[in-house]
Every structure is written in C-alpha cells, then in structure tokens.
Design a protein around this nucleic acid. Structure first.
Length: 905
RNA sequence: GGGCGACUAGCUCAGUUGGUUAGAGCGCUCCCCUCACACGGGAGAGGUCAAAGGUUCAAGUCCUUUGUCGCCCACCA
C-alpha cells in the first residue's frame, strides 16, 4: 500500500473532492424517524442575492461544528439550509442594475419587474448556497427552503389572515418613518439614530394684529411651511397673554393659532414650538389633541409638494437653504445656534428618514410579546417551553426590548415580497382579508376588487422560518420530530428584527418556543475595531481566505477565537497559525503512514490494527502492563475529550479549539510521537505492534475529535487509515468518548508522573541550551533524588530520557557524585547535572540562580506569613491550607538547594 | 438621556463560581534544515492585570468612583 503524500498540506487539492462528496451522497440527509435524541437547527437564511461574507463564515462554522459534533455523537440531526428573499435589499440591487441599463423600473411595471427579480434570483441566487457547499457545510440540501417560495407564501397568507381575524393586524393612518430613497415606509428598527451636528434656527413669527414676535426654534426650517399652530406651555408666564391669538406664518402668509400644551418644555429653545402635525411625531399628537390640520409639504421622494407654495418641487435640503435665506432677507431669522441632535437614518439607503403621514398595516405586539417574555425570563435548564439566550447580557437586552415593544409596521411599498392578502372593494370600500383572492365582495357582491399593492416586511416571513420550513401548518414528520428546533445561532444585530419576532410568532402559532436556545455569536471586526463591511471595503473575503489558507484553517481560526460575548479581530498571523496547525496534522499523518508501510512490510496484517478494540478500548498493554507514555497520552486524550464536550455544550468554541490544539500539537506530536519513535522501529515484534496500535488508536481518536473543527483534512486522512466503523465518512463515525474504565485517580497519576519525567528532560535540555552544547554531542548526565520512587520512575524511562535530552549516559543515584562539576538544575524532588565544567559560564549561572532565589524567597516569605496568620488558618478551607503548606515545603527545599549551590560557586 | 461591555506580555486575546509563583498564539532572543513537518524542533526573555479607594484571612476575579474606548436603546422642537 504505497501512499503518495505531499510534504505540506494543500487544502485546494483536498477540499473540492470532499465538498462534492458530502453534497452528493446525501450523507447529511435527515430522517425524522431515525433513532437517537434530536438535534435540529435551521440556518439564519442569508440574503438570496448575497455572497458569503466573513460574518456568515463565523456563523456557519459555529453551526457546522455543533451539527457535526452532535451527529457524531449519535443524534438524529437536521441542519436545514435556505435563503431569504430580502425585500428592500434585493429590490434595491435590481433597481440599481436596471438603472445602470437606463431602465426606470416604474415604467417596467410591477409584473415585468417581478419577472426581472426572479430572473436575477435564478442567476445570482445560487451563489451563496454554492459557496456553502464548497466550504463543506453539512446541510441537508434536500430540504433547502426559500422565504418567497409558493409554500412559504401559503404559510405567510395563513398567518396574516389569522392575525387579522384575531385583531392583531390592523390598518391605520399615522405618522410613520418614510425613506424618500427606498420610497417605502420603514419599521422603527430599520431606522438608525445618528448623532449629527446641526443647527437650531430661531425664527420670528409675527403675532397677528400686534408688532410683537413670537420666536420659535427649529432644527428643520423647511417643515415650517406645514405649520398649523405654535405651542407654548400653559403656565409659561412669558407667553400667557398670547395664547388664543394668531401668528402669521412667515413665507406662507397664513394665520395659525397659538395654543397651550403641556408637552412643551419651557427650558428648551425659546419655549415656543412650531407645530407641524404632518412632519413630526410629537406635533402629530399635539395636532390630534387640538384638532389641527395636517399639511403634508413634501412628496414621497423628498421634494417639496404643492402645499409648499413657492418652494414646490425643490429638494428638501435645497428648500431648507432657500427658506433660511428668505427668512434672513425678511429679517425674520433671529439667530442660528449649533445644535447636536439625533436624526433617523434609513438602514438600507443611509438617507435621512422623513416622518410622514401615511396609511399602513400594523401589527399589535404587546400581547404577542408576553408569552415570549415569559419563555425567556423563566428559562431554566431542562424547563419545557422556555428559551435560553446566550450570552446572558443579551437576554436582558431582549427582555427590555420586549417589555417596551411597540406596534410593528408590516407593510412596505415594494414590489418584491409577499403581497398583502387584502382586497379593497371598488364599490363599497369594504376590505377583504383572505388567504386566496376572493371572487367578489362578500358585502356588496361587487367584482371590482383590487389587491393591496404593498408587500410585507421581509422579517414577517422570516419570523415564521423555524416552523414554516418544517412543513407547518401540516402535521408533518419533520415538524413533529424537529420542532422546536434545538438551537438558533445568529448575530446579535438581528436580535430584535428576527429572533424576537420568531419567538413571538412561533409561540403564537405553534404553542411552543421555536428554539430551545439562542446563541448570539460575535461580530468579526477589522484590526481597527470596526465592524467588517464590504461597502466600506474593510471586509475580508472568506472565499479568498479559504483559498489562501484552506477552509479548515479558516474554520479553526474562527473557532479558536469565538468566545461568547466578545467580538473577533481576525488577522493574517492568526490565520497562518491555524494553517500551520492543519499542516502539523497532515505531517503527523505522514509519519504514521510511513510507519504503517514499514509495519506492513514486516508482515503484519492491517486487521491487527483495525480491530474494533482500537476504537473503544483502553490502550494496549505491553508485557501485561500499559507503558507510562501510553497511560499518559490516553489520560490526556480523555481529559481533552471531556473538556471539549463541556466547552461545546456551553458555546465555548475557543476553549474547545484550544484544547484540541494543545492535545494534538503539544501532547501528541511534541511528546508522544517523539517518545514512541524507537519503539515503532523495535526489532521486538510484540513491542512494535503495541506501540503501533496505541499510536494508531490515539490518532484515530484525535482525527474524530478534530473533525467538527476541520472537516476536510480529517475526512481525507480518515479515509487513508484502515477503518473499522463501516461508515462512509468520518462525519458519520463516532465522536471519541472518554474512557470510562479509567478512574480519575489513575488519570491524574499518569499525568503527574509523566509530567515529572517531562520536567527532568526539560531541565536537561535547558542546561544544554544554556551551556551552548553542540546539539549533536551526547553528554553524560547525573540524576539524583532521595526518593526511591522517583529514582525508580526515572530509571524505568531512562532510555527515552537519554534520547530526548541527547545524553551519552544517565547516572541515577540517591546523592550527587563528589567529584562532578558542571551545571545543574534542581526541584524539590530531584537534581540533575550535566558534568561538563569546562563550558559552564559561572557568572551567568550565578545570575540565573540569584534571580531564582529572589523569586523563591518572596514566595516562601508570603506563604510563611499567610500560614502564620491565625485568622487565615481558622477561615480558609482545609484544602487551601494543605496545598499551601505542601508548596511551601517544596519551595523551602528548592530554596535551600539554591543557597547551597550558590555557596559552592 | 438611559443601559451594556471592554481595558491582562510588544500585538491579538483566554483566565467559568475570589484560593498556592496569571496563560495561549503571534512577535522577540539564542541554538538546530535530527530521516513527519522550517507552515518545523529545542531553550528562553517579557505582565505592579487602566487608576484610586473599599469588602475579605485571601482580589485579575466582588463593590464604589474616575479615565479611555466600543456597542445597544431613546419622538425633546
């Protein structure tokens, strides 16, 4: 069995094959009736027109790690993929594209436009899913969903109609957030508030029939054209005499009343407020209270309307300038002051949002929020129908938002989306809300019905995602088995947009929480701390990085930094580190294969290695006992497996990844492989077989342990090793289990004893390095310890010690030989010395020892004083006191040794 | 205006319920291309845990204040 293996890991050569294999073989197809506990997760559907960005990469890596981990542990696993039609974003993209071709989408007409978007979807919509396949996400592609498919549409209509009939959904005219670029209403969440440096213009309004002025202050002078009153506080002495009189609205020459309203803040500005009910939320309320007219002075695209008189047709900001100039010319501008204030910005177009009066569809939320609040607030592990939110501070945010929830504006003036299932009768003005288009008006029988032109907010359909994708409202096997889903992993930036809505709608329609847990992952930031963004050019393209470093390296890198609650800063250094790790694994495998060949040439059968025992048993014994190094490695493996399981359970990806890294590189490669090398070559056949079996079994475990993090590399190597599981893929093989036969005490002993041997070797290497000995020069060394047990251990491992510390001979004794000089190292339990006095730099040695002595003196002194403290002795736990005493005793011995040594020098 | 988070080695970050001399990766210094790997091996240096108080036998860890930075929410013209 000759193996051709490249010296360095080349992910580009490995990945495409397995990506294709996984997607084609339907290895990850879910079977609702399969045995085992259930793990189900639906993907946060990325925008259908989008491409994979770094945030997806992190999110999908986390999802895929947990999915593969559960699958390998025997769970009935579903990872459902899909995409979102993303109303505004997609429409904007296509509109812009048409514009570039010189086409005005309005002229195209709705039907044709929709066709164009579907065509664009057909062309570009596959990109992100193709990318997901190419990076090997272990989804069930047979269950892929799209939020605007006919099936999803039926669900949306059913939900809308029910909410309408239940009185949650209603239609109303009120002041809404309007984007003059997107030409649609926006929900509160789609408006971001930004602090901007603006001005406060103080304008004189002449009081009718007097020579007096009433000065009002405003940040948006252009809205004055729509003023229908000026308000002052009812108890404001300055203005009491004016209430009931009129002012003459400058520029418009219209008389408007001076009214009194308690909403006015006497301290702010001049204490007199212009009231523009059609353009300000507060004013709208005041207008309602006082029965004022609402004059809309703007058009839907941000220009001044006919109602703006002479300013009609001007852009809103042009008009502002012009109005200020005109006021100034007329001597009506008293002053202008600087004023910082928050303004609403459209999340998509980044333009300034206009408050505007409009008739829209809304959804009453208060009542829907209550069960969601309960489900999250009352979460306890294992408690039915509650949802855990991780990290915990997000849970507080979530609850605060729901506690103060306001009605949701669900209609959008777009063409791309779920059309609102409401029809208006042309004869009697009756509104019909129904799942299917009605033939005639149920009230007057008229056939002149027209459907509402608007569509629903994108988040309305994605809010149904966890159950609409599983076949609801039908009682499907998928729905029964996989709902509620086990987990939702998404970004905290859509906690309110999406997670909150899913929770509310899920509970309302299915009676159950849509997911048992929500893990809100970090954002990936640039080196300077900004959120990575393609539009700003600060984003890293994961596709490019995957090419450059390998998908496994990218995944591992992200995982090793993905801690709950902290954002991630990705760097080339870090990615290179992960790539190096992949290379390390690859080369460890090369080493194994090389030896495997020798092993086979020696006449051994693969069956010997591929026995089931390899997969599940304790390490193989040699001459009736397990070698120390094997005991140690399997102990470390067991500890690592336990730690990884615990870490992944708590979304501590970084901890899991770092432990795996440390085990594989630090323990398995640096120590174990180096240690067993000679045994693998041993002429003693039994010895070689045992060494090989243990090496193989440990490596096999390590591969499976690594697989959720680095699927490609591990799949490739797994297929090259003799296998016994019969699985078609490592991803369907078992995740390694802690070896239960090993009591904790035994594991601790193995680790402690071995680490003492490691200390001996490190001490000897340290001496060599400091003495600048030729690395190829074998030198004699001396080891002494008063403890028989320690001497025996070192004696037992003296071959390995000599080899790894490059010794010529190792003399083990209870006390030092009189005549030997050279450099030495001491611990409380043993001393080692390399007798090579001619190259010892005595001064350097003295400095090192003095430094060490200082450190120890401090440590000893602080422990002595602490142990001498009666309060400490009476209050501290026994365990702590014992530990302290033991360490103190050791340090005293070490200190003593150093003092003596210094005396000799 | 409310609320939240961060501040630990030159850099990027771990450090779960307070407990013995605070860790990792990268970078840095020295040695080594030893037949798996120079994307490597070995040995090191490097931190008064942002500042000041407090609680405690014991504080990187808990409390208060301050500073710097970041985020979320919010209809004061």
């Amino acid at each position: 069995m000759a193996r051709e293996i490249a010296k360095a890991y080349e992910p580009q050569r490995i990945e495409p094959r397995w990506a294709e294999y996984w997607a084609k073989e339907e290895l990850f197809k879910a079977h609702p009736n399969a045995p085992g506990p259930v793990f189900s997760i639906v993907i946060p559907p990325p925008n259908v027109t989008g491409s994979l960005h770094i945030g997806h990469m992190l999110e999908h890596t986390e999802i895929d790690i947990l999915t593969r981990w559960h699958r390998m542990r025997g769970y009935n696993t579903l990872f459902l993929p899909g995409t979102d039609h993303a109303g505004i974003s997609t429409q904007r993209v296509v509109v812009k594209q048409l514009m570039d071709q010189g086409i005005d989408y309005h002229k195209l007409g709705r039907e044709e436009f929709e066709k164009r978007v579907w065509a664009w979807k057909a062309e570009a919509g596959g990109q992100i899913t193709e990318q997901m396949k190419s990076i090997g996400e272990s989804c069930d592609w047979s269950r892929e969903r799209f939020t605007l498919s006919p099936e999803m549409s039926r669900v949306v209509r059913k939900v809308f109609v029910q909410l309408y009939n239940e009185g949650f959904i209603y239609r109303e005219t009120r002041l809404v957030n309007w984007c003059p670029v997107c030409l649609t209403v926006l929900s509160d969440l789609e408006v971001n508030h930004e602090e901007r440096q603006g001005h406060l213009w103080h304008i004189r309004y002449p009081v009718a029939g007097t020579t007096e002025y009433l000065v009002v202050a405003t940040t948006r002078p252009e809205t004055m054209l729509g003023d229908t009153a000026v308000a002052v506080h009812p108890e404001d002495e300055r203005y009491k005499h004016l209430v009931g009189k009129n002012v003459l609205l400058p520029l418009m020459n219209r008389e408007i009343p001076i009214i009194a309203d308690a909403m006015v803040d006497r301290e702010f500005g001049t204490g007199a407020v212009k009231i523009t009910p059609a353009h300000d939320a507060n004013d709208f309320e005041v207008g309602k209270r006082h029965g004022l007219a609402e004059i809309d002075v703007m058009t839907d695209d941000g220009h001044m309307s006919k109602a703006a008189g002479a300013y009609a047709g001007q852009d809103r900001f042009e008009a502002r300038k012009k109005i200020v100039e005109d006021l100034k010319a007329q001597g009506l501008l008293e002053k202008v002051t600087d004023h910082a204030h928050a303004i609403g910005i459209c999340e998509r177009s980044k333009t300034i949002v206009e408050p505007r009066i409009s008739t829209q569809w809304f959804c009453r939320m208060k009542e829907l929020a209550e069960p969601a609040i309960k489900a999250v607030r009352e979460y306890e592990p294992g408690k039915e129908n509650t949802t855990q939110i991780v990290p915990d501070n997000r849970r507080q945010e979530f609850l605060n938002w729901l506690d103060n929830i306001r009605d949701w504006t669900i209609s959008r003036q777009l063409w791309w989306g779920h059309r609102i299932p409401a029809w208006y009768c042309g004869d009697c003005e009756h509104i019909v809300v129904a799942e299917e288009a009605p033939a005639k008006c149920p009230k007057c029988g008229s056939k002149k019905l027209t459907q509402d032109p608007d569509v629903l907010d994108t988040w309305f359909s994605s809010g149904l995602w966890p159950f609409s994708t599983l076949g609801w409202p039908e009682d499907t096997a998928d729905f029964r088995t996989y709902y509620p889903t086990s987990l939702m992993i998404t970004g905290y930036d859509i906690l309110f947009f999406w997670v909150a809505r899913m929770t509310m709608l899920g509970i309302h329609f299915t009676g159950k929480v849509p997911f048992r847990a929500v893990y809100l992952h970090s954002l990936v930031r640039t080196g300077s701390g900004e959120k990575m963004s393609k539009s700003k050019g600060t984003g890293l393209d994961p596709v490019v990085l995957n090419q450059q470093y390998g998908t496994d390296a990218m995944r591992f890198c992200l995982a090793s930094m993905a801690a709950p609650g902290t954002d991630i800063v990705l760097s080339d250094d870090r990615l290179a580190g992960a790539r190096n790790f992949a290379n390390k694994i690859w080369n460890a495998a090369r080493f194994l294969f090389m030896n495997l060949e020798k092993f086979e040439q020696g006449g051994a059968s693969l069956e010997e290695l591929a026995s089931p025992e390899v997969r599940t048993g304790a390490p193989y014994k040699f001459e009736g006992s397990v070698p120390l190094v094997d005991q140690w490695l399997y102990s470390r493996l067991t500890i690592t497996i336990k730690t990884v399981n615990e870490a992944l359970k708590n979304y501590r990806f970084h901890e899991a990844a770092q432990n795996v890294y440390q085990f594989f590189w630090g323990d398995f490669c640096d120590w174990y492989i180096e240690w067993v090398k000679p045994e693998l070559q041993s002429v003693d056949r039994e010895r070689a077989v045992v060494a090989w079996k243990n090496l193989f079994a440990a490596f096999n475990d390590a591969l499976r342990l690594l697989h959720p993090f680095m699927p490609f590399l591990t799949e490739e190597l797994w297929h090259q090793l003799p296998q016994t599981s019969g699985a078609k893929s490592i991803s369907l093989d078992q995740f390694p289990e802690p070896r239960n036969g090993w009591a904790d005490g035994r594991i601790i002993d193995a680790v402690n004893i071995f680490s003492q041997i490691q200390d001996v070797i490190t001490a000897l290497r340290n001496i060599r390095a400091e003495m600048k000995l030729d690395p190829k020069k074998r030198v004699p060394a001396e080891f002494w310890s008063t403890a028989q047990l320690v001497r025996n251990r070192v004696q037992a491992e003296s071959d390995a010690i000599s080899r790894l510390a490059f010794l010529g001979a190792l003399n083990i004794s209870p006390r030092p030989l009189e005549q030997a000089g050279g450099a030495m190292r001491s611990t409380a339990e043993f001393d080692v010395r390399i007798a090579y006095s001619d190259v010892v730099d005595l001064e350097a040695e003295k400095i090192r020892l003095k430094k060490e002595m200082e450190g120890l003196r401090k440590a000893v002194a602080s422990k002595e004083s602490q142990l001498g403290n009666e309060t400490f002795r009476s209050r501290a736990p026994e365990k702590i006191i014992r530990g302290l005493e033991a360490t103190l005793a050791e340090q005293r011995v070490e200190l003593q040794k150093i003092v003596e040594r210094l005396g000799q020098l």
